[in-house]
Amino acid sequence: MADKVLNVSGLTMDFGGLRAVDTVDLDVRQGEIVALIGPNGAGKTTFFNCITGIYPPTGGDVMVIPPGMEPQRLNGLKPNQITIRGMARTFQNIRLFPNMTALENVMVGRHCRTSAGVIGAIFRGPATRAEERETISISYKLLQKMGLKKHVNDLAKNLPYGAQRRLEIARALATDPFLLLLDEPAAGMNPQETTELDELITQIRDEDGISILLIEHDMKLVMSLSDRIFVVDFGRKIAEGIPQAIKDNPVVIKAYLGEEFEV
Protein backbone atom coordinates (compact mmCIF):
# COMPACT_ATOMS: atom_id res chain seq x y z
CA MET A 1 0.00 0.00 0.00
CA ALA A 2 1.28 3.44 -1.00
CA ASP A 3 2.11 6.11 1.60
CA LYS A 4 -0.41 8.70 2.65
CA VAL A 5 0.19 12.24 1.43
CA LEU A 6 -2.73 13.87 3.23
CA ASN A 7 -4.23 12.84 6.50
CA VAL A 8 -7.15 14.75 7.98
CA SER A 9 -8.50 13.62 11.31
CA GLY A 10 -11.51 14.86 13.24
CA LEU A 11 -11.80 18.08 11.21
CA THR A 12 -14.53 20.35 12.59
CA MET A 13 -15.67 23.79 11.52
CA ASP A 14 -18.27 25.88 13.35
CA PHE A 15 -19.83 29.06 11.99
CA GLY A 16 -21.48 30.64 14.99
CA GLY A 17 -23.84 27.91 16.12
CA LEU A 18 -23.76 26.05 12.83
CA ARG A 19 -21.48 23.06 12.48
CA ALA A 20 -20.59 22.95 8.80
CA VAL A 21 -18.00 20.20 9.07
CA ASP A 22 -18.28 17.66 11.87
CA THR A 23 -15.31 15.48 12.87
CA VAL A 24 -14.47 14.33 9.36
CA ASP A 25 -11.55 11.94 8.76
CA LEU A 26 -10.10 11.68 5.29
CA ASP A 27 -6.85 10.59 3.71
CA VAL A 28 -5.25 10.58 0.30
CA ARG A 29 -2.45 8.18 -0.64
CA GLN A 30 0.40 8.81 -3.03
CA GLY A 31 -0.77 8.64 -6.65
CA GLU A 32 -4.42 8.26 -5.78
CA ILE A 33 -7.46 10.08 -7.14
CA VAL A 34 -9.93 10.56 -4.33
CA ALA A 35 -13.38 12.10 -4.69
CA LEU A 36 -15.35 13.92 -2.03
CA ILE A 37 -19.04 13.88 -2.83
CA GLY A 38 -22.29 14.76 -1.11
CA PRO A 39 -25.50 16.68 -1.68
CA ASN A 40 -25.46 20.47 -2.05
CA GLY A 41 -24.59 22.21 1.19
CA ALA A 42 -23.07 19.10 2.73
CA GLY A 43 -19.92 21.00 3.66
CA LYS A 44 -17.58 19.86 0.90
CA THR A 45 -16.27 23.28 -0.10
CA THR A 46 -16.00 24.29 3.56
CA PHE A 47 -13.87 21.20 4.08
CA PHE A 48 -11.58 22.36 1.25
CA ASN A 49 -11.43 25.85 2.64
CA CYS A 50 -10.45 24.49 6.05
CA ILE A 51 -7.63 22.32 4.84
CA THR A 52 -6.27 25.02 2.55
CA GLY A 53 -6.20 27.61 5.32
CA ILE A 54 -8.90 29.97 4.08
CA TYR A 55 -10.92 29.25 7.24
CA PRO A 56 -9.14 28.32 10.43
CA PRO A 57 -10.72 24.99 11.44
CA THR A 58 -12.36 24.87 14.87
CA GLY A 59 -11.00 21.43 15.64
CA GLY A 60 -9.10 18.47 14.25
CA ASP A 61 -5.79 17.99 12.53
CA VAL A 62 -4.60 18.44 8.97
CA MET A 63 -1.29 16.77 8.12
CA VAL A 64 0.51 16.61 4.80
CA ILE A 65 3.30 14.17 4.15
CA PRO A 66 5.27 15.31 1.10
CA PRO A 67 6.71 12.18 -0.57
CA GLY A 68 9.99 11.30 1.07
CA MET A 69 9.69 13.98 3.73
CA GLU A 70 8.56 14.45 7.31
CA PRO A 71 4.84 14.97 8.00
CA GLN A 72 3.82 18.58 8.53
CA ARG A 73 0.88 19.96 10.45
CA LEU A 74 -1.09 22.57 8.49
CA ASN A 75 -3.48 23.90 11.13
CA GLY A 76 -3.23 27.64 11.58
CA LEU A 77 -1.09 28.22 8.52
CA LYS A 78 -2.10 30.83 5.97
CA PRO A 79 -3.22 29.72 2.48
CA ASN A 80 0.02 30.88 0.90
CA GLN A 81 2.12 28.89 3.39
CA ILE A 82 0.06 25.81 2.67
CA THR A 83 0.56 26.19 -1.06
CA ILE A 84 4.29 26.45 -0.53
CA ARG A 85 4.16 23.11 1.32
CA GLY A 86 2.87 21.49 -1.86
CA MET A 87 -0.92 21.49 -1.79
CA ALA A 88 -2.58 23.51 -4.54
CA ARG A 89 -6.25 24.06 -5.29
CA THR A 90 -8.82 25.39 -7.74
CA PHE A 91 -12.07 27.12 -6.89
CA GLN A 92 -15.69 26.16 -7.36
CA ASN A 93 -16.61 29.60 -8.67
CA ILE A 94 -13.69 30.25 -10.99
CA ARG A 95 -11.20 32.68 -9.45
CA LEU A 96 -8.78 33.54 -12.21
CA PHE A 97 -7.07 36.90 -12.58
CA PRO A 98 -9.47 38.16 -15.26
CA ASN A 99 -7.42 41.05 -16.64
CA MET A 100 -4.20 39.13 -17.01
CA THR A 101 -3.35 36.87 -19.91
CA ALA A 102 -3.60 33.10 -19.63
CA LEU A 103 0.17 32.84 -19.59
CA GLU A 104 0.50 35.44 -16.86
CA ASN A 105 -2.06 33.61 -14.77
CA VAL A 106 0.10 30.54 -14.86
CA MET A 107 3.26 32.59 -14.29
CA VAL A 108 1.73 33.91 -11.08
CA GLY A 109 1.45 30.30 -10.01
CA ARG A 110 5.24 30.03 -10.32
CA HIS A 111 5.62 32.86 -7.82
CA CYS A 112 6.27 30.73 -4.76
CA ARG A 113 8.91 28.69 -6.57
CA THR A 114 10.89 31.71 -7.71
CA SER A 115 12.62 34.45 -5.80
CA ALA A 116 13.34 37.65 -7.76
CA GLY A 117 12.57 40.80 -5.74
CA VAL A 118 12.42 44.55 -6.35
CA ILE A 119 16.12 44.88 -7.03
CA GLY A 120 16.07 41.92 -9.41
CA ALA A 121 13.09 43.36 -11.25
CA ILE A 122 14.80 46.71 -11.78
CA PHE A 123 18.30 45.62 -12.72
CA ARG A 124 17.38 42.29 -14.27
CA GLY A 125 20.64 40.50 -13.60
CA PRO A 126 21.54 37.19 -15.22
CA ALA A 127 19.97 35.18 -12.41
CA THR A 128 16.68 37.04 -12.71
CA ARG A 129 16.68 36.71 -16.48
CA ALA A 130 17.29 32.97 -16.30
CA GLU A 131 14.55 32.60 -13.72
CA GLU A 132 12.13 34.60 -15.85
CA ARG A 133 12.94 32.51 -18.92
CA GLU A 134 12.38 29.33 -16.96
CA THR A 135 9.08 30.63 -15.59
CA ILE A 136 7.87 31.46 -19.08
CA SER A 137 8.85 28.11 -20.54
CA ILE A 138 7.35 26.06 -17.69
CA SER A 139 4.14 28.09 -17.83
CA TYR A 140 3.90 27.73 -21.57
CA LYS A 141 4.33 23.97 -21.37
CA LEU A 142 1.62 23.74 -18.76
CA LEU A 143 -0.77 25.67 -21.00
CA GLN A 144 0.11 23.40 -23.88
CA LYS A 145 -0.56 20.37 -21.76
CA MET A 146 -3.97 21.69 -20.73
CA GLY A 147 -4.84 22.36 -24.37
CA LEU A 148 -4.72 26.12 -24.05
CA LYS A 149 -1.95 26.82 -26.51
CA LYS A 150 -4.01 29.06 -28.75
CA HIS A 151 -5.12 31.17 -25.78
CA VAL A 152 -1.63 31.97 -24.43
CA ASN A 153 -1.89 35.74 -24.84
CA ASP A 154 -5.65 36.09 -24.37
CA LEU A 155 -6.99 37.75 -21.28
CA ALA A 156 -8.37 35.18 -18.87
CA LYS A 157 -11.79 36.81 -18.81
CA ASN A 158 -12.15 36.34 -22.57
CA LEU A 159 -11.61 32.58 -22.49
CA PRO A 160 -14.51 30.16 -22.97
CA TYR A 161 -15.84 28.65 -19.76
CA GLY A 162 -14.28 25.23 -20.11
CA ALA A 163 -10.92 26.79 -20.95
CA GLN A 164 -11.13 28.92 -17.80
CA ARG A 165 -11.57 25.80 -15.70
CA ARG A 166 -8.56 24.19 -17.34
CA LEU A 167 -6.55 27.38 -16.91
CA GLU A 168 -7.25 27.23 -13.17
CA ILE A 169 -5.82 23.71 -13.10
CA ALA A 170 -2.77 24.82 -15.07
CA ARG A 171 -2.24 27.69 -12.63
CA ALA A 172 -2.49 25.37 -9.64
CA LEU A 173 -0.03 22.94 -11.27
CA ALA A 174 2.46 25.77 -11.70
CA THR A 175 2.99 25.83 -7.95
CA ASP A 176 4.62 22.36 -8.19
CA PRO A 177 2.20 20.56 -5.89
CA PHE A 178 2.31 16.90 -4.89
CA LEU A 179 -1.37 17.10 -4.05
CA LEU A 180 -3.97 18.89 -6.17
CA LEU A 181 -7.39 19.86 -4.83
CA LEU A 182 -10.05 20.39 -7.49
CA ASP A 183 -13.36 21.97 -6.49
CA GLU A 184 -15.98 20.90 -9.06
CA PRO A 185 -13.66 20.97 -12.08
CA ALA A 186 -16.39 19.80 -14.48
CA ALA A 187 -19.10 22.23 -13.38
CA GLY A 188 -20.62 23.91 -16.41
CA MET A 189 -18.78 21.74 -18.92
CA ASN A 190 -20.48 19.90 -21.76
CA PRO A 191 -20.15 16.10 -22.04
CA GLN A 192 -17.31 16.28 -24.52
CA GLU A 193 -15.33 18.72 -22.38
CA THR A 194 -15.95 16.50 -19.38
CA THR A 195 -14.50 13.48 -21.17
CA GLU A 196 -11.41 15.51 -22.07
CA LEU A 197 -11.12 16.63 -18.47
CA ASP A 198 -11.30 13.01 -17.33
CA GLU A 199 -8.30 12.20 -19.53
CA LEU A 200 -6.41 15.30 -18.38
CA ILE A 201 -6.82 14.50 -14.71
CA THR A 202 -5.70 10.91 -15.22
CA GLN A 203 -2.75 12.21 -17.20
CA ILE A 204 -1.74 14.60 -14.43
CA ARG A 205 -1.75 11.73 -11.97
CA ASP A 206 0.03 9.22 -14.22
CA GLU A 207 2.67 11.46 -15.76
CA ASP A 208 3.47 13.84 -12.95
CA GLY A 209 2.69 11.57 -10.02
CA ILE A 210 0.45 14.17 -8.45
CA SER A 211 -2.24 12.88 -6.09
CA ILE A 212 -5.67 14.39 -6.55
CA LEU A 213 -8.57 15.13 -4.24
CA LEU A 214 -11.66 16.41 -6.01
CA ILE A 215 -15.18 17.56 -5.26
CA GLU A 216 -17.56 16.76 -8.08
CA HIS A 217 -21.25 16.42 -8.79
CA ASP A 218 -20.94 14.67 -12.12
CA MET A 219 -21.29 11.05 -10.96
CA LYS A 220 -20.15 9.55 -14.23
CA LEU A 221 -16.86 11.45 -13.96
CA VAL A 222 -16.47 10.59 -10.28
CA MET A 223 -17.09 6.90 -10.85
CA SER A 224 -14.69 6.61 -13.77
CA LEU A 225 -11.87 8.66 -12.19
CA SER A 226 -11.75 7.87 -8.53
CA ASP A 227 -9.82 5.19 -6.73
CA ARG A 228 -11.76 5.87 -3.57
CA ILE A 229 -14.75 8.03 -2.65
CA PHE A 230 -15.72 9.83 0.56
CA VAL A 231 -19.35 10.85 1.04
CA VAL A 232 -20.40 13.64 3.37
CA ASP A 233 -23.87 14.85 4.33
CA PHE A 234 -24.75 17.56 6.85
CA GLY A 235 -21.07 17.97 7.61
CA ARG A 236 -20.56 14.34 8.61
CA LYS A 237 -18.81 11.60 6.73
CA ILE A 238 -21.43 8.95 5.97
CA ALA A 239 -19.44 6.55 3.83
CA GLU A 240 -16.08 5.82 2.24
CA GLY A 241 -14.85 3.15 -0.12
CA ILE A 242 -14.25 2.15 -3.71
CA PRO A 243 -16.69 3.50 -6.35
CA GLN A 244 -18.65 0.27 -6.73
CA ALA A 245 -19.22 -0.02 -2.98
CA ILE A 246 -20.38 3.58 -2.74
CA LYS A 247 -22.79 3.14 -5.63
CA ASP A 248 -24.56 0.33 -3.82
CA ASN A 249 -24.37 1.81 -0.33
CA PRO A 250 -27.96 2.33 0.94
CA VAL A 251 -26.94 5.21 3.25
CA VAL A 252 -25.50 7.10 0.31
CA ILE A 253 -28.52 6.48 -1.87
CA LYS A 254 -30.74 7.72 0.91
CA ALA A 255 -28.71 10.87 1.39
CA TYR A 256 -28.87 11.67 -2.30
CA LEU A 257 -32.43 10.78 -3.08
CA GLY A 258 -34.16 11.68 0.16
CA GLU A 259 -36.58 9.71 2.33
CA GLU A 260 -39.51 9.38 -0.03
CA PHE A 261 -37.60 7.36 -2.60
CA GLU A 262 -36.45 4.86 -0.06
CA VAL A 263 -39.14 2.26 -0.65
Partner: peptide, 23 residues
Amino acid sequence: SRLGRSWLALREDEIACQAMGID
Protein backbone atom coordinates in the same frame (compact mmCIF):
# COMPACT_ATOMS: atom_id res chain seq x y z
CA SER B 1 8.40 40.91 -13.45
CA ARG B 2 7.57 38.34 -10.82
CA LEU B 3 6.74 41.11 -8.34
CA GLY B 4 4.63 43.08 -10.81
CA ARG B 5 2.61 40.02 -11.70
CA SER B 6 1.95 39.29 -8.06
CA TRP B 7 0.66 42.88 -7.63
CA LEU B 8 -1.69 42.48 -10.54
CA ALA B 9 -2.85 39.13 -9.21
CA LEU B 10 -3.49 40.73 -5.84
CA ARG B 11 -5.56 43.44 -7.48
CA GLU B 12 -7.58 40.91 -9.42
CA ASP B 13 -8.37 38.38 -6.71
CA GLU B 14 -6.83 38.32 -3.25
CA ILE B 15 -8.00 34.86 -2.27
CA ALA B 16 -6.85 33.18 -5.46
CA CYS B 17 -3.62 35.10 -5.10
CA GLN B 18 -3.00 33.62 -1.68
CA ALA B 19 -3.91 30.19 -2.95
CA MET B 20 -1.05 30.60 -5.44
CA GLY B 21 1.38 30.81 -2.55
CA ILE B 22 1.77 34.57 -2.57
CA ASP B 23 2.19 36.28 0.78
